[in-house]
């Protein structure tokens, strides 16, 4: 359940020490990802700082039953990248508001965290060629028409976890 506590400490107590730990872990990786995706060093630095500032501001929107910390921070980084580096507009899906029981179910959180970890291991274990193709898609080296049907990507279990969390959320909204 990596980094969830830190994000909640930022949300609840504006905890600067927790933020510093999160920063030390994520900022260099975001910057590395942006450079791999073609950004110049100074732009990647600026963008990574913006991403972490957004993490602070949006900590209350983090839902660990629907995304791991790495997944959530990736989506923020990608949106910032489109905005700052690709200078394009990014339509976002309507977000689902919190229901009356705002705290996510702990069981969902643990399960999603485990599934995400397994996904990471499975991606690392993919044959070199296939992993490279997936990386190129995320580094922006492939256009949407060049992205092939993804067979062999170890997907499926995370989706059913997220479906459960969404169903619960929809239910509490009624």
């Amino acid at each position: 359940m990596a980094w969830i506590e830190e994000i909640f400490a930022i949300r609840d107590k504006q905890d600067q020490a927790a933020f510093a730990r999160l920063f030390a872990h994520f900022a260099p990786r975001i910057k590395g990802f942006l450079i791999r995706s073609g950004a110049a060093d100074d732009m990647a630095e600026e963008c990574a700082q913006e991403v972490l500032a957004t993490v602070w501001r949006k900590a209350a929107l983090f839902d660990p039953s629907r995304a791991s910390a790495a997944t959530w921070i990736f989506t923020i980084a990608r949106n910032r990248q489109i905005d700052m580096i690709r200078r394009a507009r990014r339509p976002e899906p309507e977000d689902l508001p919190w229901g009356p029981d705002a705290e996510p179910d702990q069981e969902d959180v643990i399960a999603l965290s485990q599934e995400t970890e397994k996904l990471g291991e499975a991606i690392a274990a993919l044959p070199e060629k296939q992993r490279e193709l997936i990386e190129r898609a995320y580094f922006g080296d492939l256009s949407h028409s060049e992205i092939a049907e993804q067979t062999g990507l170890p997907l499926g279990t995370i989706k059913s976890r997220i479906r459960l969390a969404l169903d619960r959320l929809r239910h509490s909204m009624r």
Binding site: R29, F33, S68, A70, T71, W72, F74, R78, G120, F139
Partner: peptide
């Protein structure tokens, strides 16, 4: 997006 998160975490730190 979870795949993207894993790719980002493995892209190498700068």
């Amino acid at each position: 997006e979870a795949v993207g998160g894993e790719i980002m975490m493995d892209a190498g730190a700068a």
